[in-house]
Write a protein that binds this DNA or RNA. Structure first.
Length: 414
RNA sequence: GUGAGUGUAGUUCAGCGGUUAGAGCACUGGAUUGUGGUUCCAGGUGUCGGGGGUUCGAAUCCCCUCACUCACCCCA
């Protein structure tokens, strides 16, 4: 019986897992310097955690969720993104009551039933951050700075950070009317998807990729011109701070997020060389979401998520750092094999990466294995060595060989 | 959900109507006794993705199916 992994999932092996660990450890270090604390939330949630927050009519909710009924008849969903669960936990545990500002980061798998392609999987890993409790643009600026610093530390180049503001529930309806008015006479020329968007969420027409729709919106009004005073001041303050912090950005008024909960600031980091799925990180404000979950009315918040697989594919070519075994013990007789096992046990106990072979192969082939494993040293033990209590230790780089007392091996390597 | 491309050894691929289907890499062993990377020699494996059809003859042509990949859509 032949088994394959589920479509859109992947198995990750050793040189690559090191890249994953590098990304994860770098991220947590950077985030903690900004006062973010790790939070771990479940992979499954009640389905309405997502339907209510992400939006009933979004693609994610309409056709991409892994939803099932558990044995108690509850509708359960594998999380398609991280923000909703974190907000749920934030409200459920009344974290807003413990301190005025709460900042969290998390990492873990997300699930979306989509057709896989380059940079897109059905199970994919996100590293995300969420900050609650202030609508001050300093928080927005700080978060973009944090993202920029992380991307720098990861050695990523040729990135474009696009920012936009999509207003708030006060001013957005007005803009939506303006957009509807603009496209009213062009309705017939819009793609079928955008004709639907015209009714549901005309903002999405602004970031449709269909060439015809792109053309049609050339003269369309920009969101940025229809922000109310508060939103406009907020956005201008943010861009001013980004300049002061030397965070490079480009304003893209067509950057509309696909999740309904976003307000005001939205942003996306685009990388070249990733294929069609080129966003490595994206996020924005969601000032109304906490209230939506039953938290305090005024609990502004924002966050972003990084696509780890995409990040890995950007840096795995250049990532070098590889651990190597300190010692390979080659054994040439039954007694020597026993000695090798004992010595390797002691060394490993002291934290020294030691390798031995598990069959009685020729010295030549054991040397070959040591070389394959990239061991720094090889200790060669045979009958003679056991008798005299010392064995040749070969430095695999310099080929220098010295005799080492067998009872001194452990201290030699620690 | 839509479209395109690709499925041949562990892997990367060649073969594209005609005997027993090949190569590189990888793996294992050897090149005067117990010393790696280079070189040389030797060794094995394939339901040619699966099913059906055309043909004297199919890995090769046709149909169906499955899988993978890329793109659309959408997004991290």
């Amino acid at each position: 019986m032949n088994h394959r992994g589920v479509k859109g999932t992947q198995d990750i092996f050793t040189p690559e897992v090191e890249v994953w660990r590098f990304i994860e450890s770098t991220a947590s270090r950077v985030f903690e310097n900004f006062g973010f604390q790790e939070i771990r939330v479940p992979i499954i949630e009640h389905t309405d955690v997502f339907t209510r927050s992400i939006g009933e009519t979004t693609d994610i909710v309409e056709k991409e969720m892994y939803t099932f009924q558990d044995k108690g008849g509850r509708s359960i969903t594998l999380r398609p993104e991280g923000t909703a669960p974190v907000v749920r936990a934030f409200v459920q545990h009344s974290l807003y009551a413990k301190r005025p500002i709460n900042k969290f980061y998390y990492t873990g798998p997300m699930f979306r039933y989509e057709r896989p392609q380059a940079g897109r999987y059905r199970q994919f890993q996100q590293i995300g951050v969420e900050a609650f409790g202030s609508d001050d643009p300093r928080l927005d600026a700080e978060m973009l700075l944090m993202l920029k610093l992380l991307l720098e530390k990861l050695g990523l180049k040729d990135l474009d950070c696009q920012v936009n503001s999509i207003g708030c529930p006060e001013c957005r309806p007005g803009y939506m009317d303006v957009v509807r008015a603009y496209f009213h006479d062009l309705y017939g020329e819009l793609c079928s998807e955008c004709q639907r968007r015209f009714e549901i969420n005309p903002l999405r027409i602004m970031d449709c990729k269909a060439p015809k729709c792109r053309e049609l919106r050339v003269g369309a009004p920009s969101v940025l011109d229809y922000l109310d005073n508060d939103c406009s001041r907020h956005f201008n303050a943010l861009t001013g701070m980004l300049q002061a912090l030397e965070v490079p950005y480009t304003v893209n008024p067509n950057l509309i997020r696909g999740l309904d909960y976003y307000t005001r600031t939205t942003f996306e980091v685009i990388a070249s060389g990733l294929g069609a799925q080129n966003a490595v990180a994206a996020g924005g404000r969601y000032d109304g979401l906490v209230a939506e979950f039953g938290g305090p009315e005024k609990t502004p918040a924002l966050g972003f998520a990084i696509g780890v697989e995409r990040m890995v594919s950007l840096i795995k070519e250049t990532y070098k750092h590889r651990r190597r075994p300190a010692l390979f013990i080659a054994a040439l007789s039954k007694e020597a094999e026993k000695m090798a096992l004992i010595l390797s046990g002691r060394l490993r106990g002291k934290g020294v990466w030691t390798e031995i072979s598990y069959d009685s192969a020729s010295l030549k082939s054991q040397m070959r294995r040591a070389d394959k494993l990239n061991a720094e040293y090889v200790l060669i033990i045979g009958e003679e060595e056991l008798k005299r209590g010392s064995a040749p230790l070969r430095n695999m780089n310099t080929k220098e060989q010295v005799d080492l007392w067998l009872d001194k091996v452990v201290e030699q390597f620690t």
